[in-house]
Simulated scan of single mutants.
Amino acid sequence: MGGTVTTGWSDFAVAMAGAAAALAGLVMVAISVNIREILALPGLPARAAAAVGSLVLVVVTCGLLLVPGQPGPLLGVEVLVAVAPAVALHAVSLGHRTRHSATPRYSLALYVPLAAIQLLPFVLGALLLIASGASGGVYLVAAGVVLTVIGSMLDAWVLMVEIRR
């Protein structure tokens, strides 16, 4: 087998890292412009932190995909380490949402699947890379990258627009 598990992924990684970095900047501007409103609403600072943390996860993961000649199991360990803080930030955000929500079950029913859809592919892809070094793990990580960018767009919308309603 020629190359490594990340052979052919450099264009994807560069494009997604750039997109995530730009989106992270947008989220940071939204936070700074709406900081009073964000701090006034319980749970929203944690949601903002989870959004930024998820985008940092995308940038870091895409950077890891760009490391030349990296063995699959090592990449898997690195992705697993990178996803841990994002999982923690989402867990804190979930805790705040359920404690401060008028409808905690609705918050759980909505937020848990949205967070899982974003973060689970990173975890599963990392575990597949660790277990077998197979390139299929990279496809799962890539799915996590795309889904996290989409989920972060939703968070950016809330922090920029919905907060003003």
Rank of each mutant, 00 (worst) to 15 (best):
120 L>V: 15
149 V>F: 04
45 P>H: 03
163 I>N: 04
97 R>N: 08
100 H>Q: 06
8 G>V: 09
13 A>N: 11
75 L>K: 05
99 R>K: 14
111 Y>W: 12
63 G>Y: 05
14 V>Y: 12
27 V>G: 03
116 A>C: 09
154 L>G: 15
28 M>V: 09
17 A>F: 10
114 L>P: 00
31 I>F: 07
117 I>T: 14
105 R>G: 13
98 T>F: 07
149 V>L: 11
136 G>R: 01
99 R>E: 13
132 S>C: 01
64 L>S: 01
20 A>S: 09
28 M>C: 10
67 V>T: 10
53 G>P: 01
42 P>D: 00
114 L>W: 06
145 V>E: 03
138 V>W: 06
115 A>K: 05
160 M>T: 15
62 C>R: 03
18 G>C: 09
90 H>E: 15
91 A>D: 14
163 I>W: 00
163 I>F: 04
95 G>D: 04
99 R>V: 13
103 T>P: 02
101 S>N: 07
26 L>D: 15
33 V>R: 10
117 I>L: 15
59 V>F: 01
127 L>Q: 12
75 L>E: 06
156 A>Q: 00
64 L>W: 03
110 L>R: 09
52 V>Y: 06
115 A>M: 07
14 V>D: 08
153 M>T: 13
155 D>Q: 14
51 A>N: 05
25 G>C: 04
150 I>Y: 00
36 R>H: 11
120 L>G: 11
5 V>M: 07
105 R>W: 10
1 M>I: 12
16 M>A: 08
50 A>E: 03
20 A>L: 03
28 M>H: 13
30 A>Q: 06
62 C>A: 05
106 Y>K: 12
102 A>G: 14
49 A>V: 08
133 G>E: 05
145 V>N: 03
31 I>A: 03
114 L>V: 09
71 P>A: 10
42 P>T: 01
18 G>P: 08
38 I>G: 00
107 S>D: 15
150 I>E: 03
3 G>L: 14
31 I>E: 05
78 E>T: 08
134 A>D: 15
48 A>F: 00
91 A>R: 14
49 A>T: 02
59 V>N: 00
